[in-house]
């Protein structure tokens, strides 16, 4: 395990500091496997635009829904989801998925792809 350098841990940190920036984000709701570390590693060495991770260590569903709007999937099934530079939810990573670098990077990528489709 290497230190999390690109991850804001809530409640210690303020998620709005990250959400107000025009960068790609990964919101982690339920730590599954190494998802936090993997997301942090991928955010540490982004291919182009900056990436950041917000890890809600003890997420409250209502607060999350208030912050990000309605979620498409069952709250408890979500491991993480990616946000575009304008905070549009792009991709849900579910807890029952095989979570690895490829899947997490794909979620970041899908967040970037929203800009292509816009």
């Amino acid at each position: 395990m290497s230190p999390l350098t690109k991850t804001t841990i809530v409640p210690t940190g303020n998620p709005n500091d990250v959400l107000n920036r025009s960068i790609l984000k990964m919101i982690i709701l339920h730590e599954t496997g190494d998802i936090v570390q993997i997301a942090d590693d991928l955010a540490k060495y982004p291919p182009n635009i900056e990436r950041h991770v917000i890890w809600f260590k003890d997420p409250n569903e209502n607060e999350i829904r208030e912050l990000f709007g309605d979620l498409d999937s069952n709250f408890n099934e979500i491991a993480a989801f990616s946000l575009s530079t304008t905070n549009v939810i792009a991709d849900y990573i579910l807890r029952n998925e095989e979570i690895g670098f490829a899947r997490v990077d794909e979620a970041f990528t899908n967040a970037g792809k929203i800009e292509f489709n816009r």
């Binding site: 990077d105 990528t109 970037g112 800009e115």
Partner: peptide, 28 residues
């Protein structure tokens, strides 16, 4: 990915991000 990203304006960066992400998404 070979583009000099830092030399682009914010709008250009976003546009290039979109193009790259579409390609990489295709790869995945």
């Amino acid at each position: 990915l070979d583009l000099d990203f830092n030399s682009l304006s914010h709008e250009e960066k976003i546009a290039e991000l979109g193009k790259y992400s579409a390609l990489m998404s295709d790869f995945y």
